[in-house]
Design a protein around this nucleic acid. Structure first.
Length: 504
RNA sequence: CGGGCCGUGGCUCAGCUUGGUAGAGCGCUGCGUUCGGGACGCAGAGGCCGCGGGUUCGAAUCCCGCCGGCCCGACCA
């Protein structure tokens, strides 16, 4: 009684449960003792480090510098920007004491702080307060900062990688002399996210602007990249905010302009988080586990020596080591190949399936029979586990970089086809409701997708759709020709179609 | 913070109605047979049955309180 797939249940049977199982069997992360907080395990963290390294390079190449600001934000700082406070007040962790005392054998908080400290949900306010001190003249601008940090948002409904109380991210914060420059920066970073998502994570994203109701608290404009994962729900994979002069006013970021006037700076902020890992999982993985895009994979290739026959073990191992060494001399996309050699004394099937579940792009099995024929069994993760090609060792080694490139390309094509297949222009309210209503309301089947429809711009419609269908406007897309039309809910004029979906 | 469910070895759970000193599967350890689709046999380790109190000769089981978790709602990268 062998299960056909490594993951039970399948995506079709129960998507949320499947998602959790993938994380578990791929050994990416687990829930911690602390409610809502996760432990990111070595395989998951290595993936994050690869993402970090690429993004970090991209930020530096566009003139940004890394900094580190405190985890604790004085309550008074957060209070300065009204909308900002309102947006985050409900999910802040607050530190109120600075020591513990032993009372009746139990540790209790003692010594209240004069002013409570908020554990950063984001750092606009404290960075703003600091940057205000650094900026005196237009000559001090722009200031282009980024920090890699953890943030805390006390979520009621945690889900590994998608929504946890504490998560890792990067937050960019910049200050500019003019509105135009700040807007350019906002768009530049959005574009970087878009490029990163597409070229490295193989995520086809839609980029656009958020409606007022979905905007970052305190921002004038919020841009985002949105993608559609396999249960046809949208997920926001990155955001970039044009903050206008709101935070400059709140924090007093003022400078003397070229004409000698005292002016407020124009600021931006932008970020992506470990949520990208959740997005990757839901986008590319299958019923056998995780599928890693080669460019961010912690290992590009795993070599699986079949070492079970005592008499051939030594030779198989030494051949495996030699292949490993030759592979490591090669490179893929400007990086030395990352190769794992699994020398554990386990059955071939066991080892093979472990690496399938972890999502390694290429597996090379090397057994005693291969030694005689001078070949190796090559499998790629984007093909069926049954597909195994026996090819000469030298050829296999030479082909690996090209195969990785092909897998990378293939994942993007697949994901793009999926997105396109589930993106529809919808021109009537009836069709819209039908699109977002599951046939089986007790246990909703996978349904919906991206709906491109005309909308009159009113908040009332957004609220009604959210209440009726849990559908929101994901973004007002760019790059889609702005063909005018009529709002499908009110018949009023509409400038362009916007993107609706159910979302994470 | 409102409504429902549940706390028993690492994990998933049975046992509770009808109180009598703890079980299964998976995982783990050892040995052996296997081994290129994730195998099997045998032998083991591992639990103050969420916490506190009560009823009782005796409580995982009945009663009360507390704590923790899950699901459904409101909020969210």
């Amino acid at each position: 009684m062998k299960p056909q797939n490594a993951i039970t249940p399948t995506r079709e049977e129960d998507f949320p449960e499947w998602y959790q199982q993938v994380i578990r069997v791929a050994d990416l992360a687990e829930n911690s003792e602390v409610r809502g907080c996760m432990v990111i395990k070595p395989w998951g963290y290595a993936l994050w480090e690869n993402m970090q390294a690429i993004l970090d390079r991209m930020f530096k190449d566009t003139g940004h510098q890394n900094v580190y600001f405190p985890l604790f934000i004085p309550l008074s700082h957060l209070q300065k920007e009204a909308e900002h406070v309102e947006g985050f007040a409900k999910e802040c962790a607050v530190v109120t004491h600075h020591r513990l005392e032993l009372q009746d054998g139990k540790l209790v908080p003692a010594s209240p702080l004069n002013e409570p400290l908020v554990v950063r949900p984001t750092s606009e306010t404290i960075i703003g307060a600091t940057v205000a001190k650094w900026v005196k003249s237009y000559r001090d601008l722009p200031i282009l900062l980024n920090q890699w940090a953890n943030v805390v948002r006390w979520e009621m409904r945690p889900r590994l990688f998608l929504r946890t109380a504490e998560f890792l991210w990067q937050e960019g914060h910049t200050a500019h002399e003019t509105e135009t420059e700040a807007i350019e920066e906002t768009e530049r970073m959005l574009h970087i996210y878009e490029t990163f998502a597409r070229d490295y994570l193989a995520l086809p994203v839609l980029s656009g602007e958020k409606t007022a109701s979905e905007r970052f608290p305190g921002a004038l404009r919020t841009y985002c990249i949105e993608t559609l994962v396999q249960d046809r729900k949208a997920i926001q994979a990155g955001t970039s905010h044009f903050l206008g002069q709101n935070f400059a006013h709140a924090s007093g970021i003022q400078f003397q302009s070229r004409s000698g006037q005292l002016e407020y700076a124009w600021t931006t902020s932008w970020g992506v988080s470990t949520r990208l890992i959740g997005t990757l999982i839901m986008m590319h993985s299958d019923d056998d586990g995780f599928v890693l895009p080669p460019r961010v994979a912690p290992a590009h290739v795993v070599i699986i020596p079949i070492t079970t026959k005592e008499e051939t073990r030594a030779t198989v191992l030494s051949q495996a080591e030699s292949i490993c060494a030759k592979l490591r001399e090669q490179s893929f996309h400007g990086q030395p190949l990352r190769v794992e050699l699994d020398t554990r004394d386990l059955g071939g099937g066991v080892k093979n399936w472990e690496w399938i579940k972890k999502g390694v792009p290429i597996r090379l099995e090397l057994g005693p029979r291969d030694l005689e024929s001078g070949s190796v069994a090559l499998s790629r993760r984007d093909h069926s586990p049954k597909d195994k090609q026996f090819i000469p060792v030298g050829q296999a080694i030479a082909e690996v970089p090209d195969l990785l490139a092909d897998i990378q390309k293939n994942l993007l094509i697949r994901a793009t086809q999926f997105r396109d297949a589930h993106t529809h222009s919808i021109d009537s309210q009836e069709a819209f409701y039908q699109f977002f209503t599951p046939k089986n309301s007790n246990k909703p089947e996978i349904h919906g997708g991206f709906a491109l429809s005309h909308w009159n711009g009113s908040l009332a419609i957004e609220e009604k759709l959210k209440a009726d269908l849990k559908v929101t406007i994901r973004c007002i897309p760019r790059g889609i020709s702005a063909e005018p039309g009529k709002c499908i809910f009110t018949g009023e004029p509409s400038i362009q179609r916007v993107v609706f979906a159910k979302s994470y």
